[in-house]
Simulated assay, not measured.
Amino acid sequence: MSAASELITAGRRLVDAGLSPGSSGNLSIREGNRIFITGTGTSLGGLDEADIAVLDLDGTHVSGARSSKEAPLHVGFYRRDETHRAVVHLHSPFAVAASCLEPWAAHSAVPPLTPYFVMRVGQTPLLPYRHPGDPELGRDLAEAPWMLRAALLANHGSIVAGSDMDDAVDRGIELEEACRIALLTAQAPRREIDPAQVVELAARWGSPWQPGLPIH
C-alpha cells in the first residue's frame, strides 16, 4: 500500500472512531528521506491523494498539497527517533480535555490506571502551550527530557508515534481511552497501578516508563 493510501485509510478510521472532529488533526508517514503528511485544512475522513504533501526530513516542502501547519510536530518526532515511521496528531475530546488540566506527574500527564495504557502507550508528558503551528512545538517534542512515544500538548491535543501507521493509530486510540478513564475517575478516590508493577509492565512490553531517566 502506498503512503497516500495508508494516510487515507487511517484518516477514515480515526474519523469513524470519533477522534477527528471537523478538519482537525493530521497524519504523516516517513519513507526514507521523505515525509508524507496530510495537507492543511483537510478532513481526515475525506482525504484523497491530492490532499497529501511531501516534505524532506527538515520539513521543507517538496511536492503535493500545502502541508499542515503542524508539520513541525511531525518533524520533531522523526528527528527524535528514527524508528518512528508514522505520527498521528489529534484534537480528540478526552485528550484535549486532559491537556487542559495540570499533569499527573512531570513524566506523564496521564496516570497509570490501566495496564493497556502502560503497555501500548507508555508515559505521556504534557508539553508547554504554544500556538498551533509554532515551530517551537517540534523542538519541544524533539528535546523533551523523557523517553516517550506520545505526548499531550497543553490546551491542544495529543501526538503519538508508531513503527507504522496502524501502530500509531492504535496508540492514539489507546491514549484517548486512557484520558477518558482518567477524567471519569478524577473526582473519586481511585487506585493506580503500583509503581513497581508499572515498571515491570513497561519492561515486559518495551514501552517507555522510566521517570527521571534522561535521553541518551
Rank of each mutant, 00 (worst) to 15 (best):
S2T: 15
S5A: 15
E6S: 13
L7R: 00
I8C: 00
G11M: 08
L14A: 05
D16Q: 14
A17L: 12
A17Y: 06
G18L: 03
L19K: 03
P21H: 01
G22E: 09
S23V: 13
S23N: 14
S24P: 07
N26E: 05
L27M: 03
L27S: 02
I29D: 00
E31I: 15
E31R: 14
G32P: 01
N33W: 05
N33E: 15
N33G: 11
R34C: 10
T38I: 06
G39H: 01
T40M: 08
G41E: 04
G41D: 01
T42D: 00
G46M: 12
G46K: 13
E49Q: 12
E49R: 12
D51P: 01
A53Q: 02
V54Y: 00
L55F: 04
L55I: 08
L57N: 07
T60Q: 13
T60I: 12
G64W: 00
A65S: 06
R66Q: 12
S67E: 12
S68V: 05
S68E: 01
S68N: 03
E70D: 08
L73H: 02
L73V: 15
G76I: 11
F77G: 08
F77I: 14
Y78A: 04
Y78R: 04
Y78L: 07
R79W: 11
R80W: 10
D81V: 09
E82S: 15
R85P: 06
V87N: 03
V87Q: 02
H89L: 06
H89V: 01
L90A: 09
S92H: 05
P93G: 00
A95Y: 05
A98I: 08
S99F: 03
S99R: 01
L101Q: 13
P103D: 03
P103A: 06
P103Q: 05
A106P: 03
S108K: 07
P111E: 06
P112R: 08
Y116N: 11
V118I: 15
V118H: 06
G122C: 07
T124H: 04
T124P: 02
L126T: 09
L127I: 12
P128Q: 07
P128I: 07
R130K: 13
R130D: 02
H131V: 14
G133E: 03
G133N: 05
D134S: 06
P135I: 05
E136A: 15
E136Q: 15
G138M: 08
R139F: 11
R139I: 15
L141P: 04
L141I: 15
E143M: 13
E143Q: 14
A144Q: 11
A144I: 13
P145I: 12
L152N: 02
L152D: 01
L153T: 05
A154P: 00
N155K: 11
H156S: 05
S158R: 01
I159S: 10
V160S: 04
S163F: 08
D167A: 09
A168R: 03
G172A: 15
L175S: 02
L175T: 00
R180T: 04
R180A: 11
I181G: 04
L183T: 05
A186V: 12
P189L: 06
I193P: 07
D194M: 10
D194I: 09
D194H: 14
P195S: 01
P195Q: 02
A196V: 12
A196C: 06
Q197I: 13
Q197H: 13
V198I: 11
V199W: 02
E200I: 09
A202G: 10
R204C: 11
W205M: 13
L213E: 14
L213V: 15
P214G: 09
P214L: 09
I215E: 07
I215H: 09
I215K: 08
